[in-house]
């Protein structure tokens, strides 16, 4: 199994970055994307959230673990 997936797994050290400035630019661009995506998620989040948050939170009870 892992033989098959080895090639497709991208390990953290194997994403080459030319130099440290590229890394900073890439990180900033990525941070901007994350912020834009978060704004987009917030626009539609009320349609994803449980309709009655208070009931949902109160009724979420889990007894008897481990």
């Amino acid at each position: 199994m892992t033989e098959k997936i080895r090639k497709s797994v991208s390990t953290p050290a194997e994403s080459p970055v030319e130099n440290i400035e590229d890394l900073a630019v890439a990180k900033n661009a990525h941070a901007e994307n994350i912020k834009a995506d978060l704004d987009h998620l917030l626009d539609e989040i009320d349609s994803i959230l449980e309709t009655n948050a208070e009931d949902f939170v109160n009724s979420y009870v889990q007894k008897g673990g481990e």
Partner: peptide, 19 residues
């Protein structure tokens, strides 16, 4: 909601299903 937070992936969907 975590799937909407752009978390970085280590494993592809097809590999997870194969596993």
């Amino acid at each position: 909601l975590s799937s909407r937070m752009n978390l970085r992936k280590l494993i592809s969907q097809s590999d997870a299903e194969l596993a």
